[in-house]
Write a protein that binds this DNA or RNA. Sequence first.
DNA 1: ACTAATTTTTAGACTCACCTAAAAATTGAA
DNA 2: TTCAATTTTTAGGTGAGTCTAAAAATTAGT
Lengths: 218, 218
Amino acid sequence: MFSQSEENYIKTIYHLSIDFDGGISTNAIAKQLSTKASSVTDMVKKLSEKEVVVYKKYQGVTLTDFGKKVAASIIRKHRLWEVFLVEKLNFSWDEVHEVAEQLEHIKSPKLISELDAFLGYPKQDPHGDPIPDADGNIHQIEKKLLSLLTIGEKGVCVGVDDTSSEFLKFLDKQGIGLGNSIKIVEIEPFDGSFVIEVNEKVLTISNKIASNLYIQKR
Amino acid sequence: MFSQSEENYIKTIYHLSIDFDGGISTNAIAKQLSTKASSVTDMVKKLSEKEVVVYKKYQGVTLTDFGKKVAASIIRKHRLWEVFLVEKLNFSWDEVHEVAEQLEHIKSPKLISELDAFLGYPKQDPHGDPIPDADGNIHQIEKKLLSLLTIGEKGVCVGVDDTSSEFLKFLDKQGIGLGNSIKIVEIEPFDGSFVIEVNEKVLTISNKIASNLYIQKR
DNA sequence: ACTAATTTTTAGACTCACCTAAAAATTGAA
DNA sequence: TTCAATTTTTAGGTGAGTCTAAAAATTAGT
């Protein structure tokens, strides 16, 4: 069994490993968890004794296969709770994270399997991220950043990269949500901003916004 | 804000205060929490600094009005989660306690008010215990131990005193549940056992069982 | 009322997760 | 390649919450 603190480290290392391959630096982990590199060194030694990570001094850490399974189970809980909060308790997608951070640490296999069934075995969380299955397998759907599309291309909004409250509130205000069809009308060469058509409305979004929206072409 | 440990002490002191009035001894708290009296003394000093309890050396502790409010809010969360587990996630009433012990510490006012609404503002938990309202008021329903009734009296089963898994499983096996109408057919003078009629069936229960079942006369 | 038994508190120590400050290793720039 | 900047680790310390053992206070038996 892992403490809440250990679980937070495991989850963080997992997330950092997605964009970066090779050892994750103690500094990167420290920054993500708002703690100090020295604290990370301590924890990482403990996790390596528990066979969750491989750690060589000054080389950063990588998750073992076991560690990846543990991470997947924490993320599974986190995302299932997010679905619950949005679908059943009227939370908006920018309010769920903080509470899910707490709920993900509840220990009860029955709770999670029943919650999964109660929610109808959802495959994605409210931000479009995949929910790992009970065995820890993650089925990532085919998706592309909106900013990589060209004029005339169409697709469906299936996720966001940045999940900050400010960004999600902005999307709500613009009327952009998961499942919406989006068509690229124009790309401004000067600043890379995009003119898109969504929900029968035409609007302009900055390149930064476009670089945080995932589109599935289908 | 209180730590999980502090919350567990506050809840325990509250529960112990129901059956004994006057100061609750450190020993009683220690036994309930499976810890040592010396640890209790430490915590109780801290809680008294936070104005949650009144503590005089060697005199035991009592909750302040503020402490009672805090206790009620923890118990409210615990019981709402119990209802959720039984009504929505197919837990049986003997499985809920352990998980609710974890869930009761989740911090989010919105979570609890939305959960309350989602469950249809329940007034009792699965064991028949009252759910405190958002202001900390507890509306205890009128009830009596079955063992205090006499031959011919009738009532409805509204709660249990002992909530141990063994007892609850026993009740399930006998077909006794909340809401069932119960009639006293006979009382055995020799051992004080009761012959009762419930769900059109007649069965005999020991005095010990009868002393753990609450009946509402209506 | 006076011991004896029990309860409660104090004192000191432990683990966990964190910190700061300094030392050591790595990296990068001229 | 060398040395300065950066990163990482070590060393030592803190607070929360727990423990054991011993001291102090209370309660109970005669």
